[in-house]
Design a protein around this nucleic acid. Structure first.
Lengths: 306, 306
DNA sequence: TGAATTGATGTCGAGCGCGCATGAAAGCCA
DNA sequence: TGGCTTTCATGCGCGCTCGACATCAATTCA
């Protein structure tokens, strides 16, 4: 009751060449093997497929009926296999990345550009969110890759650190603070502080540092976007603390960045994936590209060690 | 590099049940066998299909990609197999019958009606022609079945006699000849003879009888159709000789038929098929029906022996 | 902490498909 | 017409695949 694809291939070869010997040569089989295979197929289907004697081979009506079917099936099978192979090779697919905006902006553009360059059929979706939703998205499979700060250890998530980024003071470049080498976090106790939104990763870290250092800092503003914070600082309304690599996002010219000391603080960025779950091939490729991009960013950033 | 349908079935079962053991039970396999089969499929595709530990089984992205493909392929395969099975069983197909009109009219209607009754998807094409073209059509495959008089023996054709039909005198029933028992062929030397067209099988036989009996018979008319000949006779323009079973075709009322003697002559009708060539299943069914119909016609016709 | 469930692995046996050698039939040619 | 060649079928031996069975490892539940 079963016809294997191999049997259909053998049938097709005989039908096309009109000869068992020629078909066997083409298939790289011995003629007896081919004869047997065709006979088995005929028995499986319950009908003769070729009227043959030692001199002539001709399709029977059943064989003629099978021919287009086998062809269609073969094309279907080959096509499906090709599709899948491309997916497996990472040449096709969809990758969803959940990322903190500040990290996405640093690491993703180059990686995605490199991916698009030689794998144009891979679709990349970016969901930027705060760190909690990023972890949630990865945990329940809505995103394959998460880019975020180091999360609390979890059995459901794997974390792989990529690079760390020093926090620094951000102020106008005509501010006297801009001239200082290695200002301390305590400066924020004396000047209006532009804070990020409460659940943002930058805010969580600055709050932690203030707490740890026993500093009483009252945020003057709370921004959801780095660009807003940058503009507030540029307008002279306050100063803030940001990781260095996020600086281009806070973009207005006329701003200075000085690494903060006491305590020297670094934000670690990394990749989060679902534990014990395979990545799609395309996602694996993108992940490698992100890792490479992170290495490049780390080596370019003189102040940054792992 | 090869995924067998069986491997895809196993994959689907695991994907659907979410469990190797349950899938194995459903497939009627042992669980180890199923495990191995899935592993082999994964190796063949070069990618893991399930993320699994002893407690959970979940599709990987590649597995999720394969799932609809496997489903489509399975449906395609099953559908194609079903189509072919129906063809093999004779439930679907096209049969071309080449036949002498006089024989077709006798044997085909009942056989085709019986065929259409329980195999509505079998298409029957009838090509009525003279005996030469009938043989040609069968010889080169344009027709699978030929209905004709006994042909000259040929290595390319098989002939199977069905029934034989006595020639008789056809005249008006008010003709004095109609009262005679067993008139002889010599009557045609004395009365206007309505002949059939030169290449028709009836004409060939009547000519042969006249030649053999040394009778000089000049045809008065030559008809291509039996109906025409019948009407000419009915109009009193002449008499003719026809096999008994063709009489209904020569139809007008008021005609008599009397078996001819000296020599008693029978037309043998039979089935011609291509030698060493399989019939399509549907054609084989039709052939059997024709044979049955011929047997019925023979038993009904008291004057007809084999 | 022990019992039960589930997937993986090792081993063995049966069946299938392959190649090789050989047989039978049909056409070709002298 | 009788060899020769070509072509498909068949018998045999072998290796690979796939099956079941027994067993192991890991995880959950009581």
């Amino acid at each position: 009751m079963k016809a294997t694809p191999h049997q259909l291939l053998c049938f097709q070869a005989v039908a096309e060449t009109g000869s068992f010997s020629a078909a066997a040569r083409r298939l790289g089989l011995s003629q007896p093997a081919l004869s047997r295979t065709v006979r088995l197929l005929e028995e499986a289907l319950g009908a003769r497929l070729f009227d043959r004697n030692t001199r002539n081979v001709a399709l029977t009506p059943v064989g003629a009926e099978l021919r287009p079917i086998a062809e269609r099936l073969g094309a279907e099978f080959g096509g499906a296999y090709g599709e899948l192979a491309r997916f497996v090779a990472g040449g096709r697919g969809r990758v969803t990345v959940a990322a903190l905006p500040s990290i996405a902006a640093v690491l993703l553009p180059a990686a995605i550009a490199a991916l698009a360059a030689d794998r144009p059929d891979v679709e990349v979706l970016i969901a930027d969110a705060l760190s909690g939703p990023v972890l949630d998205a990865v945990r329940d499979g809505r995103a394959e890759i998460g880019l975020t700060v180091q999360p609390p250890p979890s059995a459901q998530l794997d974390y792989r650190p990529l690079l760390s980024d020093a926090f620094g003071l951000v102020c106008r470049d005509d501010d006297p603070l801009a001239a200082r080498d290695g200002p301390a976090w305590s400066v924020f106790a004396q000047r209006p502080f532009v804070a990020m939104a409460p659940a943002s990763s930058v805010r969580l870290m600055t709050d932690a540092v203030f707490l740890q250092a026993g500093l009483a800092v009252t945020p003057l503003f709370q921004c959801a976007f780095l660009g807003t914070a940058g503009r507030l600082v540029a307008a002279g309304l306050g100063i803030t603390a940001l990781p260095r690599l996020t600086l281009p996002l806070a973009a207005p010219p006329g701003l200075a960045w000085r690494p903060l000391a006491r305590p020297a603080t670094r934000r670690q960025m990394g990749i989060v994936t679902r534990a014990n779950r395979s990545l799609s091939p395309a996602a694996a490729v993108l992940l490698d590209l992100i890792v490479a991009e992170a290495r490049r960013a780390a080596s370019l950033s003189e102040a940054d060690g792992p």
